[in-house]
Amino acid sequence: MSEVILKGLKKVYDNKVTAVHDVNLEIKDKEFIVLVGPSGCGKSTTLRMVAGLEEISDGELYIDGRLVNDVAPKDRDIAMVFQNYALYPHMTVYDNLAYALKLRKTPKAEIKKKVLEVAEILDITQYLERKPKALSGGQRQRVAIGRAMVRDPKVFLMDEPLSNLDAKLRNQMRAEIIKLRSRIDTTFMYVTHDQTEAMTLGDRIVIMKDGYVNQIGTPQEVFNRPVNLFVAGFIGMPVMNFFDNCRLIEEGGVFHAEIRGVRFKLSDFQQKALKQNGVKPCDIVCGIRPQHVTVGEGELKATIEVSEMMGSEYNLHARCEGDEVVKLIPTVDLATDVSMGRTVSFTT
């Protein structure tokens, strides 16, 4: 069992700046949890508190049922992969992988066996005699992951491990982390600012902003049922379209959203939620995912400002009557002309 429990975790720096407010989180054994949010939201600080690299100002941290607030990082049975790889530059790949085990006075034969095993998994056996500077970014990151793996930690912490890689390599490494996860049965805590990484890797996602946890849920939950405007806007690519100054209208027990004078019937889930919460007609902000926008029909009109050809789809940036920029994703077989300056109709 390697459950991690964060109870009211708080980080206040000496200058009285609170970086993390009251984080409560239960990470199940072998769960892959991703902390995501913009820069300065406290996700890395939270991870560093779990690692023991930051002192916990308040709250309790349990790893595998043991309170570890005052336990030294090396005794927490965790391993961490850093953004900048943090490899020892003067050591070979083999020595980098073996160093933590050497410090634990592991027998040489066992170290060798473990290092070779991990190198095999990560496909870095041919680089064992090289020094880190003779490796590419992707290879270095594999070594950094390997260095964490050899220790068989209860919890695997990753702090933006793919941020230094180019887009292609990042996608490749992301897929490798997914494969790796199936091979090493342990609990993962992964920090990223990239919502795509969060969505693809996490069993559950923790979305943070300004030191507060905004929502915890599966990728589907946070995408389909965001709890607030921040989560709705942060998760999803392209980002959700928001329409200010809209009205929630109820007619014959059925809720509609009125956007620029045009009514849209809300989904069954939304109808149910609004009724359950006893919501009365009021001014609202409407959020519509670009994927739910259809061009070529409907009463809302918008002028296309930018049309981005993305290969299999277009990203359209259009300006609607109320000045909001709308992003649409039509397919390549779209019949409508999507050239700039053209006015299109759309619906949701």
Binding site: A51, L53, P73, I78, A79, M80, Q83, N84, Y88, R147
Partner: peptide, 11 residues
């Protein structure tokens, strides 16, 4: 981060 990695290694 190099120091932090070493701390976690137990150095």
């Amino acid at each position: 981060q190099q120091h932090e990695a070493a701390i976690l290694d137990g150095a």
